[in-house]
């Protein structure tokens, strides 16, 4: 599966499109990480635990979007966008969406 966030897949032509595909996942971090992060909040700096967690979640969202596109019969997703929002206290939602296409 080719995934881009531009209009096309360079070097290939889009022959067919299937509409919007999306993948989302919602993750919560456990209480221990929350406490550690609030301590880190005092001094600032990267919250490694959170970065890693969000990265994992985003990968899962991409996986789900890819699965969605595969079920439609596509072999590429173009113009992909990400969005992150906090749905509930302490839980983050990662969302990826794009257009499923078939390229040649």
């Amino acid at each position: 599966m080719i995934i881009t966030n531009i209009e096309t897949v360079p070097g290939k032509t889009i022959v067919e499109h299937f509409g919007l595909v999306s993948g989302s996942t919602i993750r919560a971090k456990h209480i221990g990480r929350d406490i550690m992060a609030s301590l880190k909040n005092l001094v600032g700096g990267e919250l490694k635990g959170y970065t890693q967690l969000l990265q994992e979640s985003r990968n899962q969202a991409i996986d789900r979007m890819t699965e969605h596109a595969r079920q439609m019969g596509a072999n590429a997703i173009v113009n992909v966008r990400f969005s992150t929002s906090s749905i509930a206290q302490g839980a983050a939602e990662l969302y990826a969406y794009g257009t499923a296409v078939r390229v040649r």
Partner: peptide, 9 residues
């Protein structure tokens, strides 16, 4: 789920 962490299904 927020206490234990993980995917909020």
């Amino acid at each position: 789920r927020n206490i234990f962490g993980g995917t909020v299904k």
